[in-house]
Design a protein around this nucleic acid. Structure first.
Lengths: 167, 167
DNA sequence: CTCCTATGCGTGCATATACACGCATATAAC
DNA sequence: GTTATATGCGTGTATATGCACGCATAGGAG
């Protein structure tokens, strides 16, 4: 019986028990949801989600960039970024920018966008502090290594029906 | 300059460079997206996403349960689970079940649901193997600790405007 | 029985994520 | 110059996520 959630022990009926899953993916997704809530709560008074803050900060450091370039920076699917940018543009935090290549659509921070980042930054810093306090410097470092290891798995997954059922 | 993505070093222009972000939340979200792709790719031949497989496996272990109880098991927002269940029901993998409490809606695996789990399990196992190979047993264990630490942060966030701007 | 409270459920709304497509343009090949 | 290829973009479709609400019922207080 390979589980998927609660690893061992008994079912205590009510208490969530806070046991990690045996599935690394489920664990990572749960961790992601939990930490996202911490940051989103912190940034709420600035009217931003952490995903939006991430986009804005990157824009503030890169100046005018194409959508694809920004997506690469954020390690985000380009089409996902297109949607994420839409709400930021509607909110007036991001504006269009010229580009040499006419296929490209340049985007950059608006004045309001810069103000939003300035207002949100201390809240983000506070969330960072909370997390480091919780995970420890080592935990934060391990997390960085985790990302690098996992993002390096792209492409050559090779989990075909053959590799599972035949041999 | 607190970054948010690429920590130090130079911008090489094209190579993604695979540097972790300085933001733990961004790192965790990136890791989550990456690992989800590994599992989703593995489960694709079984026609399931890892999120769906997770629901089905939990159902297969719990038998008939209420939506709320299942949400607690999965550490998922109840309303999120309601939507996730919808597609599984439409696919005929999950069916309704009776319940003593008439407020509750019982759900359980259908025969097709059990078959889907049986078909998907080896693929999931293979994905687990891939991940353990990549992260090492230690990495997988640290990941489990990470989840527990982060899910324990619920509630008392206390990142108010005061705690940041005033004091 | 009636009222209050706790619990379970589903929906509206907003955002995030990614794959499959199709459109447009820049570039290289001839 | 025309054709083929590569690159950049946005949309349709499907799923995931969670908050704010409102509805309904179970259980206890009176």
């Amino acid at each position: 019986m390979d589980a998927m959630t609660q690893a061992p022990s008994v079912r205590t009926k009510k208490r969530p028990t806070d046991q990690p899953s045996v599935c690394s993916c489920v664990n990572l997704r749960r961790a992601s949801r939990a930490i996202t809530k911490v940051y989103d709560d912190a940034l709420q008074s600035a009217g931003l989600k952490v995903t939006q803050y991430s986009v804005l900060v990157n824009l503030s450091r890169s100046g005018s960039v194409s959508v694809s370039a920004l997506a690469r920076m954020l390690r985000l699917d380009r089409t996902t970024l297109v949607r994420n940018l839409k709400s930021l543009e509607q909110a007036g935090l991001v504006e269009g920018a010229a580009s040499s290549d006419s296929r490209e659509r340049g985007v950059s921070l608006s004045e309001a966008g810069r103000a939003a980042v300035a207002q949100a930054r201390p809240r983000w810093t506070e969330a960072q502090r909370l997390i480091e306090q919780r995970l420890g410097v080592d935990g934060v470092r391990q997390l960085g290594e985790l990302v690098v290891a996992l993002e390096g798995m792209a492409g050559q997954d090779a989990v075909t029906a053959d590799s599972v059922e035949s041999e």
